[in-house]
């Protein structure tokens, strides 16, 4: 039994509830024991991060400290939360003064940031903790014949300070998983592009204009569905797809899967258990 502290983030508990629900059943199947902290707050997304950087560090350090208290690695399902944790960790590990000040504030709750917690994402956990070999053994329903396009999202491939890519288009982890699950990966121009989510709550214009062409390029490349490890990307790709169709002047109708849903299908879970019916673009799968 592998143990993780699990941080779903705001999206997986509101607009993308199906992600949280499917992750839970998939984790059961994979034999993960998850500890979730009900009192964990938002990590500050891009907003608090930019306008109140000091508060941003404290919010994230508090959540990381909860995982540290229980001596667990911290697993997320959201790219932006992952990057926020990684940035906080890097900053506090490199700057003992900042760490002391954060700890002074966390003291009243009995928490202490120590810097020993490993931050991971469901995508990385599949390859690093479960491992390709074991994951392959667990596949009971091969997704052979399914053509999938990976949409990575920005914050688990960039910035290079964390992920060290010279060119983030060289990211391959989702394609590695696709191969393990038996489906074919489509190469297309939008793989590691931005969905525009972080401007969408203010003004969805930029997201719609930027992202329609990525879905179009996946569809033109023969993709039957897109899989993404990030609920924010999912919100834009799935939720705004109708608006994007007007932008690219083409019917798109490309289902967008959360990564745990795809894994769940291969592990033999039923589409209803994975809440595939909760998407804006109906999910009709060839397998």
């Amino acid at each position: 039994m592998m143990k993780f502290a699990y941080y779903p983030g705001c999206s997986a508990q509101s607009t993308c509830k199906e992600l949280n629900a499917s992750l839970r059943v998939v984790a059961d199947k994979l034999g993960l024991e998850l500890t979730e902290y009900a009192s964990a707050s938002c990590t500050g997304s891009r907003e608090i991060r930019a306008v109140r950087p000091e508060l941003f560090l404290a919010l994230n350090a508090r959540i990381i400290a909860m995982a540290e208290r229980d001596n667990l690695p911290l697993m997320t399902v959201c790219n932006t939360c992952t990057l926020n944790f990684l940035d906080t960790k890097k900053r506090l590990d490199e700057d003992p003064e900042a760490r002391d000040r954060v700890n002074e504030i966390l003291k009243s709750e009995g928490l202490r940031y120590q810097g020993k917690c490993r931050i991971t994402h469901f995508l990385w956990m599949l390859l690093d903790d479960i491992g390709p070999k074991k994951l392959k053994e667990m596949v009971v329903r091969s997704l052979k014949g399914m053509k999938l396009a990976a949409f990575y999202g920005c914050h688990i491939v960039r910035p290079p300070a964390h992920f060290h890519f010279f060119d983030s288009r060289n990211a391959r982890s989702i394609e590695v998983i696709n191969e393990i699950l038996g489906c074919e990966s489509i190469d297309y121009s939008g793989r590691t592009e931005c969905c525009g989510f972080h401007t969408a709550a203010d003004n969805e214009k930029v997201a719609i204009k930027l992202t329609g062409r990525h879905i179009k390029s996946a569809k033109d490349g023969g993709a039957q569905a897109i899989v993404t490890p990030c609920p924010l990307c999912h919100t834009v790709l799935d939720g705004f797809q109708k608006e994007m169709e007007r932008e690219v002047k083409q019917k798109l109708n490309v289902p967008i899967l959360h990564l745990p849903q795809l894994v769940g299908l291969a592990l033999g879970l039923a589409p209803e258990t994975l809440h595939l019916n909760r998407h804006m673009v109906p999910v009709k799968l060839p397998v």
Binding site: R46, R158, H198, T199, V206, L210
Partner: peptide
């Protein structure tokens, strides 16, 4: 209107 995609940093 910056989408925080980090392409510039890359």
């Amino acid at each position: 209107e910056c989408v925080s995609c980090y392409r510039c940093e890359e």
